[in-house]
């Protein structure tokens, strides 16, 4: 426990120091890594702990991005818009959870997959509010230099990541985390023992949505311009799952390890072999399922 806290603080110190003395390429990569980390840690709540294979990350991400963007369009300040995006994503997750979490396994996966598509169509057609297919421009924060701006968004994303990490940390030690592990292993037995499975699953789903929603809003401000196919991209859902599986589902550090590894792979392949990029993702998924079903962290020494 104590060692865990120390590891976490050391990691945080490194992440805080990272922007010092790197160029904007690495800064962009670092911000993306933190964003991926948020996606992975969030998926871990519903997919890793509760065992529900959700493909709704892209829906939360896009919803957060548009909630933040529209809020700023109406003149709200950036930070308030980001918080609002979190609230909207959480409320959406709660409502969606009560409807979708009645399904299990493949059925749940497919149902959660279409949510992003539905939202994308809605955003596409609500042209007055969202600009529709033309996309939406966001106000550019006024800062001394482009580098300052890049650093600002790095730290903003780091803030979201720290929030998400703290939530994972707290949940794993709580009644909720214990109950979710029971649900993953045997839902009907958990139900029979008096675990309020619906409530627990909805809570996990909300936790899997809220930070992704905030990250979406931060991303929107960071890139200044969003359009539906960009922020409702199904790859956000797929990547989140791959990262968690790569690192180790249901663990504290697994999603982070997975995010770093995945981004490194993605960047290398993307830079050098852009035409086979998606094929590479597919290959990675196949290899993971075949050889690493428990993730990299399963190789950690001394693991019970």
């Amino acid at each position: 426990m104590k060692q865990g806290v120390l590891t976490g603080l050391a990691l945080l110190a490194i992440l805080c120091a990272l922007p010092l003395g790197v160029d904007s390429y690495w800064l962009r990569l670092g911000t993306t890594m933190l964003m991926y980390g948020v996606l992975a840690m969030s998926w871990n709540f519903i997919g890793g702990m509760a065992g529900y294979p959700s493909f709704a990350s892209a829906a939360f991400f896009g919803l957060g991005a548009y909630a933040g963007a529209v809020a700023q369009k109406f003149g709200l300040s950036m930070f308030i818009a980001w918080s609002l995006a979190g609230v909207v994503a959480a409320m959406f997750a709660a409502a969606l959870g009560f409807a979708l979490l009645r399904l299990r396994g493949h059925y749940f996966a497919i149902a959660s997959l279409v949510v992003a598509e539905v939202l994308r169509e809605i955003v596409n057609s609500a042209t007055d509010l969202t600009g529709g297919g033309k996309g939406l421009n966001l106000p550019v924060p006024q800062m001394a230099s482009i580098d300052d701006q890049a650093r600002f968004f790095y730290y903003a994303m780091l803030g979201v990541a720290v929030l998400a990490f703290s939530a994972v940390f707290a949940t794993q030690r709580s009644r909720l985390g214990f109950g979710l592990r029971c649900i993953r292993q045997n839902e009907s037995a958990a139900d029979m023992l008096g675990v309020n499975v619906t409530l627990y699953k909805v809570n996990a789903f909300i936790l899997s949505g809220v930070f992704v929603g905030i990250a979406g809003a931060v991303y929107a401000s960071w890139v200044h311009y969003i359009e539906p196919p960009d922020v409702f991209d199904v790859l956000y859902s797929v990547k989140a799952i791959v990262m968690v599986l790569l690192g180790g589902a249901g663990t504290l550090y697994g999603p982070l390890v997975g995010a770093v590894l995945f981004l490194s792979l993605e960047e290398l392949v993307w830079r050098n072999y852009i035409s086979v990029h998606t094929g590479m993702l597919g290959l990675l998924i196949v290899l993971l399922v075949l050889f690493l079903p428990k993730g990299i962290l399963a190789f950690r020494p001394g693991r019970a």
Binding site: R181, C182, Q185, N186, S188, A189, A190, M192
Partner: peptide, 12 residues
């Protein structure tokens, strides 16, 4: 209830 087939949490 003790359910049929035990239904334990096997990884716990």
């Amino acid at each position: 209830q003790v359910p049929e087939g035990r239904r334990l949490f096997s990884a716990m």
